[in-house]
Design a protein around this nucleic acid. Sequence first.
DNA 1: CTGAAAGCGCTAACAA
DNA 2: TTGTTAGCGCTTTCAG
Lengths: 353, 353
Amino acid sequence: MNPRRRTVTIKHVAAEAGVSLQTVSRVINNEPNVRDAVKARVQDVVARLGYVPNLAARRMGGSRSFLLLALNDRDRTIEGWRLGEGDDWVDQMMLGGMVKCAEHGYRMLVELVDTHAAHVEREIAAALSALHPDGVILTPPHSDNPVITGLLGARGVPFARIGSVADGAGFAVAMDDRRAAEVAAEHLLALGHRRVGFITGSDDYALSAARLDGYLRALHAAGLGDDPSLVGRGDFSFASGRAATKALLALDDPPTAIVASSDQMALAALHVARERALRVPEDLSVISFDDTPVVRFGVPPLTAIKQPIAAMAAHAAERLIRAASGEAEPGPERSILPFDLVVRASTAEPRED
Amino acid sequence: MNPRRRTVTIKHVAAEAGVSLQTVSRVINNEPNVRDAVKARVQDVVARLGYVPNLAARRMGGSRSFLLLALNDRDRTIEGWRLGEGDDWVDQMMLGGMVKCAEHGYRMLVELVDTHAAHVEREIAAALSALHPDGVILTPPHSDNPVITGLLGARGVPFARIGSVADGAGFAVAMDDRRAAEVAAEHLLALGHRRVGFITGSDDYALSAARLDGYLRALHAAGLGDDPSLVGRGDFSFASGRAATKALLALDDPPTAIVASSDQMALAALHVARERALRVPEDLSVISFDDTPVVRFGVPPLTAIKQPIAAMAAHAAERLIRAASGEAEPGPERSILPFDLVVRASTAEPRED
DNA sequence: CTGAAAGCGCTAACAA
DNA sequence: TTGTTAGCGCTTTCAG
């Protein structure tokens, strides 16, 4: 009945072990200046009593909060969840981030924030004041939102910018989007394609430009000149992918292959191709970015650039935790993690006409 | 430079408004006994200073933690994320739970816990000691794990059991799994099927039995006797679905329709059917449970029972928050939320032979 | 190496 | 209707 019953505190441990609070504190925080014998005794009592330090009290005492805050775009995330189109970005982030946090006695709290709204600043300031996280993980498109990075920087909260290519406060953890797009295009060029189209992502995301750049670079390297008509504008959505694909296929000399900057847009390309009675990959090759689950279940399964989302989140968490532990400087060096090109059935040599 | 710079506390607000800490506390907690004029003045200062109460300090003061803890099965969740097969259970839970929490100034923390391990008790006790959440949301199969429900009950922590059919401590929030299976079977019977097979879920989940029961009930109501050979054992996995489907199709008088207790098993049924050159739905109708994204992208898209996961999580969060606010008793009544049968292309009338 | 004291930001209990 | 007094459980000083 007593609501506070059974709450083992540091006091109980201290009393039971016959030492001061301070000594127990030192032991659980793995600090020096405790004799091994005492340390062992305390640890024994801790285990026996099942003592676990109260996180809130710990924070109050002026130490770390053992909390990492992961900020995701509210509208996009909720829309993705509502639609249930199989986007597993958040899941992959949790897979990497939460598991890594758990390894270090940390917790990762996911929070949804409007990136465009006028009150971003207030929203984030409120979250920081309420939670006092030891670090923040920014995901696209927040990673390159100057209002957010500025606030975090001013507050002195260490933070990671996932998928960011820019410099600035915090540190970037990304894959090489430029190179990824380049590899995708190279794959198609190597198959013999000469007319390779590209569908861009939303301008909200800095990586959209990087991918376009990589694509262009591959074409130039292959001695293919600039043909702006081969670049369709998209915003990652299925609808935008449809529109862009239609435009590309309506060209006098349409592409025989398309690199789309998202899975949804690649699926849209598949869709349009089917409407036009174009076979994939015989008449049209398609490569997607992201590699969310749905592309594996597409017909045909899509060749895709696989983003290391879990790895990026884990890496970000690790760096933040290290910094909070004082083990390492929260330096500004960016971390570039490897990506994969997963070749499936949506790419092949072009027909010989 | 100063790490604690810019942290507005209740003191600053009190000083600025020319009132005591207590009065500010009363205002931010919306408690009575504050003159409207004073209240307005304080709220004004709060807004102007951008003050947000520190969660940790609040807990320390002996009040709520404004935290809800959602417990998911570690192995299953991580495996699902790793495989990336499009299971969006956690996403739906977050959609419902996090958004509802945010409405009330709460936060939902997701934690992964081994349900089978000997140390479940320790794991959960540790999480409770560290976090002191105002409530816990249990998801299957934790919802019916007596060790977990027992511990939570003993500790006096209010908790919701999502997808639970049992009585006991906490309260259940579920859909009517029995009825759902019944509706699925009825749909097939109404189409004219007389040989309807069923593939069960894992025995770890209490709802597996409920679904089987519903299926049997529909058959009996249709005047069809018990044929145990029509019931295949599964555990929700694709592999188990394959095995069960093979066994069903190998019967002398094989079913013309199958209700599978999970999407993965339904997809497996599709798979096996294709191997046998059976057309779906012409030769075999298939209904799945869960309605994860992948079933919509299957060929053909699957008719499915859609679980109200987001709604259940939101409802659970709301009840827990209400209880923590003292607005309502954390009563034991179970909440049953409506499900949907989404008819797609995998079900049709049986062939007339 | 160990302990005692003070305080983190807030809220409960009590006074006024 | 308001303000004052204690703590909550822990960690940081600073003494021994």
